[in-house]
Design a protein around this nucleic acid. Structure first.
Lengths: 189, 189
DNA sequence: CGTTTCCTTGAGCGGTGTCAAGCCGTGTGG
DNA sequence: CCACACGGCTTGACACCGCTCAAGGAAACG
C-alpha cells in the first residue's frame, strides 16, 4: 500500500484504488473519495488544500506535471469537457456519501459501501447481476474512516451481515454476495 | 420560503440562499449543499438524479433552459471553464462537509456551520474580521438536516454556545459573533 | 517461535436520538 | 381587544446506538 504524495501532479488511475483523505488536527480522519480506474486524479487551478491522495491497493498511474495538463486543456477544449464530466460525477458521488454519513445507520453504511464497491470494482459488468465476488480494496480501519465509524463497529456490522447470510467472507478480505438485491435492501435508500 | 422546482433549468443565484437536498425513501433528509449568490445552479449533461433544489430564503434567480446553456458552452469555451471552476469549488466544499458529517461532534458541527455562514453570507468582507452579525438562512430543522443531527440536538448545542458567550442570539434567527476566533476554536479543524 | 498487524469479540459508558411537554411569537377569527 | 390555534423553538427524562477500553484470535513475517 503505497504512501501519499503531493498532488502537484496529475494522473490517470490505470488500475487499483486511490483514496482521498482529510485529517483534523487531532488525528481524526475521513476518506472523502475513492478513485477507481479509469478515473482522473488531481485538482487543477489550485493547490490541493488539505487533501491527501494515497494508494489503497497496488496502483498503476499515468502521471504528468500540472503545467502539462493546463497547457493541454487550452489546446484541447475536449479535454476540459471530459474533465468537467468526471468532476460532476465525483460531485454526485460525494453528495450520495453525505447522505450516508449524515443519515444512515451503521449497518446501512456498511451495506451501501459494499454495494458501491460492487458497482465500481468491475465497471464493465452489466448493472443487473445477481451475484458478485471481489476483494475489499480497504482495510477495516479504512472502511471506518470512509463511513465515519470505528473499526469495532465496522467489524461488528460485517459480522452481522455474515450471520444473516447476506454476504460470505474468505480471508478477511474476499467478499461474496449471492443476492445483490438482499444487500441493496439494507442500504436504506 | 419557496417550493422546489425541477432542475431542468439552469440559474444564477442573484441573491438569497438555495439548498440542495436528498431524501431517503423513509423520509430521512440530508442537505448536501447550499448555494449563495453568485453561485451557478444546475447539473449539465444529465438529469439531476435525486437532487432537489429549494429556496431557503427569498431568492432572486436568473434562469434559462438547459439546452441554452449547453449550446452557449459549445460556442464559448470560456463559459465551460468557469463552470468547471465552480464545480471544483463545490466539490471542495462537499468534501469539507463530509469530514464534518463523519468525524465531528454535534457542537463542532454547529460551530463549523456558523463559521461557514459567516464566510459565505458576505463574500466581499475581508477574511480577518473579528466580529460578525447575520440572519441564519435556515431554520433549526434545516440546520439539523444539513448537519446530520436532530432539531433537539441543534437547539441544545446552540443554547450551549450562547451560554458560553461565544454567540448571542436575537429573535431566534439573528446571530452575533463577537470573537470569530473563539467560534473557530470550537470547529475542531 | 516470537512479533507484529489486522481483525474480532465483550463489557460498559456516553453522546445523541426519541418522546413528550411547554414556551414564545404570530396570525386569525370572534 | 381577547381567545385560540399554530409553527418554530426550547427543555427535560430516558433509551439506545455506536464509541471506548480491553482482551484475545488469526495470519504474515522475521
Amino acid at each position: 500500500m503505497g504512501d501519499s504524495r503531493s498532488v502537484e501532479r496529475f494522473s490517470n488511475v490505470l488500475s487499483g484504488v486511490v483514496k482521498l483523505t482529510k485529517t483534523l488536527s487531532d488525528g481524526r480522519q475521513q476518506i472523502v473519495g475513492l478513485q477507481f480506474a479509469p478515473d482522473f486524479l488531481g485538482r487543477p487551478f489550485q493547490s490541493e488544500s488539505t487533501l491527501t491522495a494515497e494508494a489503497a491497493t497496488d496502483v498503476e498511474l499515468c502521471s504528468f506535471p500540472r503545467q502539462a495538463l493546463e497547457r493541454m486543456m487550452k489546446e484541447q477544449p475536449n479535454l476540459e469537457h471530459r474533465l468537467l464530466e468526471q468532476k460532476l460525477r465525483e460531485l454526485d458521488q460525494a453528495r450520495d456519501w453525505m447522505v450516508a454519513l449524515g443519515r444512515k445507520t451503521a449497518s446501512e453504511k456498511i451495506a451501501s459501501f459494499l454495494l458501491m464497491i460492487v458497482h465500481n470494482i468491475d465497471p464493465a459488468a452489466g448493472p443487473e447481476r445477481r451475484r458478485a465476488a471481489f476483494d475489499l480494496p480497504l482495510s477495516r480501519a479504512e472502511i471506518a474512516d470512509f463511513l465515519g465509524l470505528t473499526v469495532e463497529t465496522v467489524s461488528r456490522q460485517i459480522t452481522r451481515l455474515r450471520g444473516e447470510n447476506v454476504i460470505r467472507i474468505e480471508n478477511n478480505r474476499h467478499v461474496i454476495v449471492d443476492d445483490i438485491g438482499r444487500l441493496a435492501a439494507r442500504a436504506g435508500d
